[in-house]
């Protein structure tokens, strides 16, 4: 009998000991109202092929003040910063012939042949002032831009380097997604002291070229 009583008490004691923490756990859980499992917002950054750069050769005529007009060759590269503005760099060369005076006087030439090499580089900011579209029949619609450029550069001519200002305008037509065709008119303005006194010269460039976008 005593054994049975003991067993009942023991059983009761064990049961209460086991259930007590369970009750406490249940209570604690019931306080937990907020769900901490906030879903993280996922972002993906696709590496889309960009073509903000263009580079290509060009050819044209350069009319050098006091000299003749001659063929001009060059390379042109541009970085399109946004749809409105681009940075542009040019490197080109041409060669001056005899001055009118040298031709008429028939005397000894005033400059060496190597001094008649006209090479230049410049850095410009371009502004796509008039974006447009060109339609060829009803088959093609090509993007075009009429732009202005302005900048500065260096001209190596008659044995010296001259600080040169560039102003100009041009027209660009995109033949497809990665080839463009450009026409440009530029004035290369610099002060030259080769004939004794310092004078401002305007050297007009007319050129055309293709560039490749990448």
């Amino acid at each position: 009998m005593e054994n049975r009583h003991k067993r009942v008490f023991l059983a009761a004691a064990v049961c209460s000991a086991l259930t007590a923490p369970i009750h406490a756990e249940e209570q604690r859980e019931s306080w937990q109202i907020l769900d901490p499992g906030i879903e993280r917002q996922e972002f993906s950054s696709p590496a889309i092929n960009r073509d903000d750069f263009e580079i290509g050769p060009y050819i044209g005529m350069l009319s050098i003040q006091d000299f003749n007009s001659d063929v001009l060759y060059g390379m042109r590269a541009a970085w399109h910063i946004n749809e409105d503005f681009f940075f542009e760099g040019n490197y080109g060369s041409s060669q001056a012939d005899l001055t009118s005076y040298e031709k008429l006087s028939g005397g000894a030439p005033l400059f060496d042949d190597s001094e008649r090499d006209y090479t230049f580089y410049d850095l410009n900011l371009g502004w796509n002032a008039l974006p447009g579209e060109i339609f060829i029949l009803d088959v093609y619609a090509l993007k075009s831009d009429f732009y202005f450029v302005g900048g500065a550069g260096s001209t190596d001519f008659l044995g010296d380097n001259f600080f040169t200002l560039i102003v100009g305008a041009g027209f660009r037509m995109l033949l497809n997604d990665w080839i463009s065709w450009r026409f440009d008119v530029r004035d290369h303005i610099f002060d030259r002291d080769a004939f004794g006194n310092n004078e401002t010269t305007n050297n007009i460039e007319l050129s055309t070229g293709v560039t490749f976008l990448f």
Partner: peptide, 11 residues
């Protein structure tokens, strides 16, 4: 489909 990007525009 995202084909290519030029400045701030995507084809």
């Amino acid at each position: 489909e995202l084909l290519r990007q030029r400045t701030d525009w995507i084809k």
